[in-house]
Simulated scan of single mutants.
Amino acid sequence: MPSQKFLVPVGSLLLVLAAYYFYRWAGVAIAVSALVMWLLLHFSRMMQVLKRTTNRPIGYVGSAVMLNAKLQPGMTLLHVVAMTRALGARQTEKDVQPEVFRWTDGTDSHVTCTFVGGKLAQHALFRPAGDALPPAP
């Protein structure tokens, strides 16, 4: 995450400078237009994900076991919210690192996810004791 804070602005600036060097002001206009389009695409995706979460209860997921199977370290919070189609129930104070969110399903199983800098650091599945499978015949 810290490298992205510097690489994206520096890369954008280098793109604009290269466009000016090779194509003068027409190149700058195209480069700036491309950067604005890129920002609008990310903003549009974020708004679409958040729009899908509006009618779902906070912290609910259809199956905590399936969510646990799909999670991978390094995923962004936006990606996890898009997978669950629901905002996670916050378990920590606001603006405190690491952030911990929980998603629970109908069987009271839940997945607790820890995000550091907006990226998934670890996750844990909890299943109640009553979820034991019946013995095989």
Rank of each mutant, 00 (worst) to 15 (best):
T114F: 01
M37E: 07
T92F: 08
T53M: 06
F6P: 00
V111Y: 00
K94A: 10
T107A: 14
D108I: 06
L15W: 04
G130N: 11
I30G: 05
T76R: 14
Q97W: 09
K94T: 13
V32L: 10
A34P: 11
L14P: 04
N68I: 02
L15S: 04
W103A: 01
R102Q: 11
V49A: 02
A29L: 09
T84E: 04
A31C: 01
M66R: 15
A132L: 15
G11L: 01
V49L: 07
Q48K: 13
A86L: 03
A124C: 08
M47P: 06
S63D: 12
A82C: 00
M47Q: 15
R45W: 13
A19L: 06
L71A: 03
C113Y: 00
T76E: 08
R52N: 12
H42L: 12
V111I: 04
G106T: 13
V80T: 02
W25L: 10
D105K: 02
S109W: 05
M83E: 08
E93F: 11
S3H: 09
V96Y: 09
L71S: 05
R56A: 05
L87D: 02
V111E: 02
A82Q: 10
T92Y: 03
V61K: 05
P73Q: 08
S3W: 14
G118V: 06
G118C: 04
E93G: 14
H110Q: 05
A121W: 14
K51P: 06
I30K: 09
N68S: 14
L77F: 05
L67F: 04
M75Q: 09
V32T: 09
A34H: 01
L67W: 06
A34G: 07
V28H: 03
L17W: 09
G74Y: 04
F43C: 04
L133N: 09
A82P: 01
A121F: 15
V96G: 03
L133I: 05
A18S: 10
R45A: 06
P9Y: 02
S3L: 08
E99K: 09
K119P: 02
P2F: 07
F115T: 01
T76F: 00
A136F: 15
G62S: 12
P73V: 07
R85I: 07
N68Y: 14
G106P: 02
T114P: 09
V10K: 00
L40E: 12
V16K: 02
I30A: 14
H123D: 08
L67V: 03
M66I: 11
D131T: 09
A86C: 10
S109R: 15
L133M: 11
I30R: 08
K70L: 12
P73D: 06
T54L: 13
T54E: 12
S12K: 06
L78W: 06
L39D: 10
G62C: 08
G117H: 06
S44C: 04
R127M: 13
D105L: 01
K94R: 15
L14W: 03
L17M: 08
A132Y: 04
V116W: 10
R90M: 12
R85A: 07
A129R: 15
L67C: 03
A82G: 05
P137A: 08
Q48I: 07
Y21R: 13
F126I: 10
Q91T: 03
D105Y: 01
Y20R: 08
L41V: 11
S33Q: 01
Q97Y: 12
Q4Y: 05
V80C: 09
W38Y: 13
G118K: 10
N68R: 03
Q48F: 06
Y60Q: 12
R56W: 04
L77M: 15
